[in-house]
């Protein structure tokens, strides 16, 4: 007689492979757009069937900066604004790995703006995902370089009167090979865009318009996170290949989303290797990084 013991199948959350479950629950507010962004990234990585050992995520500081801490990947939570140059160093050391920068608009575009444009200019083969909630959320809702004109922030209590950056045109004009914008509502399209961006050789950029109900919505009396998602639903206009001069975001204006740039261009390392080969011929010792042989 045989005794058969049957254990109930261990239930595994579909994202368990990609999340540090020992760090869940996360610190983000409910209805924050970061949850869907992380889900989109995790889904994209799963669908691409990448070797997850060879994927690293780098973040700066801020709410989005915390993403690195929740992803079960080699993950680096760096200093404010410096995620991109840190990622550049990591990528150059390990060109065999996919390096993804996920950070916020304040981190990437304000304090890190110089790194953003120069890394795009060089066409370094990394993916940058910018979660744009129009505000500095972690520090309490201060004005950002993306805050729409007239929107209120903790340090713009009477409204912001500075011109904000148009991130797609900034990325494209700096040299990015892939530029897309979606909102946190467009989960499936966002996932596809992240897949495209990761696959794309060169500097690829995805802007995610994301709700911050605790600060941006509250300071501007826009209702709950759900109301913002409803706003995205009613006001997003999908326009692939749009003229990027026309994708500015005004306060509670229509939001043009879509894939704006998808071009082929030699990457930074391609250019370096080709250039030196031309100059030095066989004497050139091609840069191979660490080759993972440590």
């Amino acid at each position: 007689m045989t005794v058969e013991t049957r254990q109930p199948p261990k239930e595994e959350h579909p994202m368990e492979k990609l999340l540090r479950m020992d760090r869940i629950p996360h610190i983000w507010c409910s209805t924050c757009g970061l949850g869907t962004t992380v889900t989109a990234l995790a889904t994209a990585l799963a669908q691409l069937e990448l070797d997850l050992d060879k994927v690293a995520v780098v973040s700066g500081i801020g709410c989005t900066g915390r993403v690195a801490g929740y992803m079960k990947l080699d993950s680096f939570h760096t200093t404010h604004g410096r995620a991109i140059p840190f990622a550049l160093g990591l990528h150059i050391a390990r060109p065999d790995m996919k390096v993804i920068v996920l950070s916020g608009d304040g981190d990437l575009i304000s304090i890190g703006g110089n790194h953003f444009i120069h890394t795009a200019r060089r066409n370094v083969d990394i993916t940058v995902i910018c979660v744009n909630n129009f505000i500095y959320a972690m520090t309490g809702g201060q004005v950002a370089p993306t805050t729409p004109i007239t929107a209120r922030a903790a340090t713009a209590p009477h409204g912001n009167f500075e011109h904000p950056f148009n991130l797609p045109i900034l990325a494209a004009s700096s040299g990015a090979t892939y530029v897309a914008r979606w909102t946190a509502l467009h989960v499936r399209r966002l996932t596809e865009a992240i897949k495209d961006a990761i696959t794309k050789p060169g500097f690829s950029f995805v802007e995610v318009i994301a709700p911050c109900s605790t600060l941006y919505a509250r300071l501007n009396r826009l209702g709950s996170g759900l109301d913002l998602m409803k706003f995205y639903h009613d006001n997003s206009i999908i326009r692939h290949g749009a003229d990027m001069n026309e994708v500015d975001i005004d306060f509670q204006s229509k939001i043009v989303v879509g894939k704006f740039v998808d071009i082929e261009k030699p990457t930074y390392l391609d250019c370096i290797n080709d250039g030196y080969k031309r100059v030095f011929g066989n004497r050139y010792q091609p840069y191979g990084g660490a080759n993972g042989d440590h």
Binding site: V58, I84, G289, H294
Partner: peptide, 13 residues
């Protein structure tokens, strides 16, 4: 950026 990049590369081995 220089200092950040050398840290990234060092972690890369």
């Amino acid at each position: 950026a220089s200092m950040a990049a050398i840290l990234g590369a060092s972690w890369g081995g």
